[in-house]
Design a protein around this nucleic acid. Structure first.
Lengths: 168, 168
DNA sequence: TTAAACTTTCAAAACTTTTTGAAAGTTTAA
DNA sequence: TTAAACTTTCAAAAAGTTTTGAAAGTTTAA
C-alpha cells in the first residue's frame, strides 16, 4: 500500500471509530490528519485535504482544542494560525477519558446518588427491584470512576506495568 | 422523590448516557425500563410506558436481544412474548464490552495491523510520523484488547479485587 | 487610521438516524 | 382448515446532527 493511500485509510477508520463512539466523524478525521502530520497545518490545508468548508474546519478545530487534543501554534512572522496534535497516545487516551468522565460520567453519578436516596416500601417488588438495580449500577459506576481517576494520574509505564502484573 | 418520578428519571438518564456513547437512546431506555421491572414485560406495556410505536419497540427489543442484554420469556398458556433484562450489572458491563469489542475495536485492530505494514523512506518525515503514530496507537489498542479479554473472562469479585490491589 | 489577512459565527441546507404505522407474515387454538 | 392473536418488516416521515458559505468580526502591518 502507498503511503498516501494508507493515510487516507487511517483518516477514514479513525473517523468511523469516532462516530461509533459518539464523537463527530469530521472532528475525529481532523484529529487523525494532524496526528500523522509532522508539521503543524493551517485551516486552509485541513480544508483542502479533507474537503470540508471553512466553517466546519474552524468549528472542529475549536472543539479539538476544547478536548485538549490539539493546540494552536504561531509561526514567527506569519499571520496564519497553525494547528498540531499531541502525538503521545497515552496522553490522548487520558485526555479523552478525562473529558468524557467530566461530561458524561459525572452527571450520571450525580443522578444515581440522588436516586439511591429514594425510599419506599421494602415489601413492594417494584421498589425492591428499582432500589437494587440503582445500588448495583451506582457501585459499578463508582468503581469505574475510581479506576479512571487512578489512570488519569498514572504514568503510562506504571499503568500498563501494573495491569500486566494482574493479567498475567 | 416519588418512586414513579425516580423511575422516569433513571430511564431518561440511562437513555441520555447511551446516546452520548453511540447507543440508540430508545434502546437504552427500553433496557432501563426492563432493568427496574421485577416482572417481564410485553411489547404492549413497553410501548405504553415509553410512548413509542410498535415497530420501534420491536426493533429495539430485537437489538437488545442481539446485544445479549435481554431475553424473551414465554409464560405458560400465554400467546404473548414477555421480555426481561439480566439484572447483574457485571454481566451487563461485560456484555457491552464484548459486543463493542467485536463490532468496533476488532475492525480497527485489523486496519491498524495492515497500516503498520506500510513501508517507506525512513528519511521522509511524512513517513516517519505516520509510521510512529500507527505503531503507537496499535500498541495501545492491543493493550486495551488484552485487558478487555481478561475482563471478559473474569469474575467480578476477582476483577475488582485485583484492581483494588493496584490502585490502593 | 486603513485595508488586507485572517478567524468566527450562524441560519439555512444537506445529510443521517430514528420513528412511525400499516401491511405482511407467523403461530396457535379450535 | 380458519381466524384471531400476535410479531416482524419496511417505506415514508420526523427528528436530530452536521455542514456550508457568506457575512461579521478581529488582528496586524504600514
Amino acid at each position: 500500500m502507498e503511503l498516501a493511500e494508507a493515510k487516507q485509510k487511517f483518516i477514514e477508520s479513525w473517523g468511523k471509530l469516532g462516530s461509533e463512539w459518539g464523537i463527530n466523524r469530521t472532528m475525529a478525521q481532523v484529529h487523525a490528519l494532524l496526528l500523522i502530520s509532522p508539521e503543524a497545518l493551517t485551516t486552509e490545508e485541513i480544508m483542502e485535504t479533507l474537503n470540508i468548508s471553512r466553517g466546519n474546519a474552524n468549528m472542529n478545530l475549536r472543539d479539538l482544542i476544547g478536548w485538549g487534543l490539539i493546540e494552536k501554534q504561531h509561526k514567527a512572522g506569519e499571520r496564519k494560525e497553525y494547528f498540531f496534535a499531541d502525538k503521545d497516545t497515552w496522553n490522548i487516551a487520558r485526555q479523552v477519558a478525562k473529558e468524557r468522565r467530566k461530561r458524561e460520567l459525572d452527571p450520571v453519578l450525580k443522578v444515581l446518588d440522588e436516586l439511591s436516596k429514594v425510599t419506599g416500601d421494602s415489601k413492594d417488588p417494584e421498589f425492591r427491584t428499582f432500589s437494587k438495580s440503582i445500588t448495583d449500577i451506582n457501585k459499578l459506576a463508582k468503581n469505574v470512576d475510581k479506576t479512571l481517576d487512578t489512570m488519569l494520574k498514572a504514568e503510562e509505564s506504571w499503568f500498563w506495568g501494573s495491569l500486566f502484573k494482574i493479567f498475567k
